[in-house]
Design a protein around this nucleic acid. Structure first.
Lengths: 218, 218
DNA sequence: CAAATAGCGTGAGTCTTGCTCATGTTAATC
DNA sequence: GATTAACATGAGCAAGACTCACGCTATTTG
């Protein structure tokens, strides 16, 4: 699996114990996100639940956002892993199948993976804009980058499976598709805890309609 | 103009002076959002810039989120106003024109209205999910509701202009379209400060393709 | 017109939270 | 066994969200 993680951690856990601790903190972070949401989540509480002193928490995570960002990256890697696994099982004949497969897998993770409903790949914040002074929330960039990574991975697959024309146009199209799908699926899960089935169907519809203009028809 | 504002304010400003103060606080909130983003925005700084004591701030706004929510609602009302104004000027023959008109107006506001790039109609947070304990961030619901209001308004227009079949299906379709468009436009403005023109074009494309399956062709 | 009353305005101060850092503890190296 | 380096810890600090007791100004009342 490609390691996507960039400078997210302050110190990379070397020993077994530290590694387990970091994993535990991420787990508790995810569960807390489901319970109280991002704003109400406190680093102290995450540390307490993971049975890790607050000082140790800050040995590994630069701040609250770093924690959530790390979780988002873990989610992303899990998602990419599941996608590639499913793709090696199923031999798909049409690209439309890939749309369904991707969305289904995303939906499955929304349902089963703690915290995924809240952060998925990182789109919790929206703080772009002007000269950021202090606090320096670059989380949004992370979200942007992460969805870009999803798009990039999908592009590789699309090009492999059916010889789609490579180029900046394809990049853009897939990027837009991923972003739009993400938004509609968020909507589906806001309406119903397990995701409104009609909205999920509509999401597939939306993506297929859009892509059919850009990908070769079969 | 329909008054959309629900219980956003603690006390509704009755006298002229209070009303100006509230307006000033919203203005400064918007400008600060552009400068430092949501996380780094402080109520003290908003109050300071608006030349209003912090105590008075809390007379009107319940909390930081309430402030931003109020701004989002003001934005929404301004947007709906502009849309209806443009629609009364231009007599549109095809529904595709309405897509362009709506998106163009949204883009124009993203460029000109302070703070609109950050909050537009309220999608700053993402904190749905389980039993919210304290802090009770219901901002996301507000965002949801606000986009629903946009969709609803557009539906009224669509039904008026061309006798589109009314029903829950049309509601859902428009809701999805608004949500997807919102996401792609956010993306466009993340890539470039003034909005990537190619992504804006792609957004129109996406919406038209999607709607063409649900609205009567001309 | 003065007194009583009711609402409005105010900012010092409280409480909570993110985060640090000096000190203690364990493991590695010589 | 001594020295050094890496890791662990939680009391404490800084900063920000939000309150509340008091003063002030308008409005009503005898």
């Amino acid at each position: 699996m490609t390691n996507v993680s960039g400078g997210t951690l302050r110190r990379r856990p070397a020993q077994r114990r530290s590694l387990e601790r970091v994993e535990r903190m991420l787990d508790e972070c995810a569960r807390l996100l489901d319970e109280v949401g991002y704003e109400a989540l406190t680093t102290k509480e995450v540390a307490r639940r993971a049975e890790v002193p607050i000082g140790t928490f800050y040995q590994f995570f630069p701040d609250k956002q770093g924690l959530v960002r790390a979780l988002a990256i873990r989610n992303l890697e899990a998602f990419l892993g599941r996608i590639t696994a499913r793709l090696s099982e199923v031999r798909l004949s049409e690209w439309t199948e890939m749309v369904d497969l991707t969305i289904d897998e995303f939906v499955a993770m929304k349902r089963s993976t703690p915290g995924f409903a809240v952060v998925d790949f990182g789109g919790v914040f929206a703080t772009p804009g002007g000269p950021i002074l202090k606090g320096t929330d670059r989380m949004l960039d992370a979200a942007l980058e992460n969805n870009a990574i999803v798009a990039d991975r999908l592009r590789t697959i699309v090009v492999e499976v059916l010889g789609a024309p490579i180029g900046p146009e394809l990049d853009r199209v897939l990027f837009v598709a991923v972003e739009a799908a993400d938004a509609v699926l968020k909507l589906a899960f806001r309406s119903l805890p397990d995701g409104d089935p009609e909205l999920i169907a509509e999401c597939k519809h939306l993506v297929r309609r859009y892509l059919s203009a850009h990908l070769p028809q079969e």
